[in-house]
Amino acid sequence: MKAFFKILKYGLKLSPLYLFSLFINDIVIALNPFVTLFYSGKILDYLLSNTSVDIIMKEVYIFLAITLGLNIIKNREGGTIVLAFRL
């Protein structure tokens, strides 16, 4: 743990974005199933209760937009900034 915090401290000294970069992949990966689970349940519930297409599609837009946003953050930060720190 001591070594871990030492590395963390060193990383923060080099780049303030380091901590953010270090955990962003894990945060996005952890968030994804919750988003999917929440919206899948919601969409299934709508489908089983004969809700109109417009209302269901509205939820689909939001669901897919959140997923897209998470993917973009993962690609951008997870890749580039961590790599910059390693070098």
Binding site: L47, I56, V60, L64, L68
Partner: peptide, 18 residues
């Protein structure tokens, strides 16, 4: 592109269920 693909797939399938 994946976003567009999913959107089309969802709309086709949801319309099918409805």
């Amino acid at each position: 592109l994946g976003y567009i693909r999913d959107l089309v797939a969802y709309s086709i399938l949801i319309t099918g269920v409805v």
